[in-house]
């Protein structure tokens, strides 16, 4: 399973490296969202500084919708799924591979956006251990839930509009938890943030488990 996951992830990342969609389109979009928040909430009134953790994670969620759609758009033709099945890769491996590839891309985006909030919002980044655990666990949760709900909409004509409707309500607890944990880290009160990081870890594990269990059934369809 893990070897298959690695194969799929490597394939997706190679595709991304050659097409550079995340790098050239999704990353600029995420930065643009940060800048638009700056326009919406006047930087001089202190609102931006107070809202930094929430805005950061909303930007991440928006970008993750695009990343998930991209990850399944490359599998959307009927033959590519057949080839995937015929190749003998186990479905749970496909799921973990997809989630891993999405995670790697999201992590790169999140590092970029951390720089973005430091520059545009004047945020002082600290509480690095909590920040790192939050970023890793929230990303794993977003990628796992995204891979599960993303595959549900493959091949549908309304895929692009359906994926956010399916994904974002499910990811609301991640936004809540990650925002609170970030607040705690940036305010230098990490003790308040660790329980939320724990919630994020549990969410990620639950969705990784659900995806491993459900993918067999979802991929077997014609």
């Amino acid at each position: 399973m893990l070897a298959d996951a690695w194969l799929i992830a490597a394939k997706d990342l190679r595709l991304e490296w050659r097409s550079r969609v995340t790098l050239a389109q999704i990353a600029p979009f995420a930065v643009l969202v940060l800048v638009l928040f700056g326009f919406a909430l006047d930087p001089d009134r202190g609102l931006l500084a107070a809202a930094t953790p929430g805005l950061y994670w909303v930007a991440v969620l928006f970008a993750s919708v695009l990343a998930v759609q991209r990850a399944f758009a490359v599998e959307s033709t009927e033959s590519s799924r057949d080839i995937l099945l015929l190749s003998g890769v186990v479905p749970s491996g496909v799921f973990l591979g997809k989630a891993l590839a999405i995670s790697v891309q999201l992590l790169a985006l999140e590092v970029l956006l951390l720089g973005g909030v430091a520059v545009f919002y004047g945020a002082t980044l600290r509480g690095w251990l909590l920040l790192a655990v939050t970023v890793l666990s929230a990303t794993a949760g977003i990628a796992a839930a995204g891979s599960l709900y993303g595959v549900l909409a493959t091949g549908l004509r309304v895929r692009d509009t359906l994926v956010p409707l399916l994904m974002l309500p499910v990811l609301a607890p991640v936004l809540l938890g990650a925002t609170r944990a970030f607040e705690a880290a940036l305010e230098d009160t990490p003790a308040d943030g660790w329980p939320w990081a724990g919630l994020l870890v549990l969410f990620a594990l639950a969705y990784l488990g659900a995806g491993v269990a459900a993918y067999g059934s979802l991929l077997e369809e014609t």
Binding site: R157, A214, S217, E221, T222
Partner: peptide, 20 residues
């Protein structure tokens, strides 16, 4: 309901909506 409405193949519809 959006997912169900969009999926035409009945078996696929059953599988996908059962997971959701």
């Amino acid at each position: 309901l959006g997912l169900r409405g969009a999926t035409e193949d009945r078996t696929a519809r059953g599988r996908r909506s059962a997971i959701v």
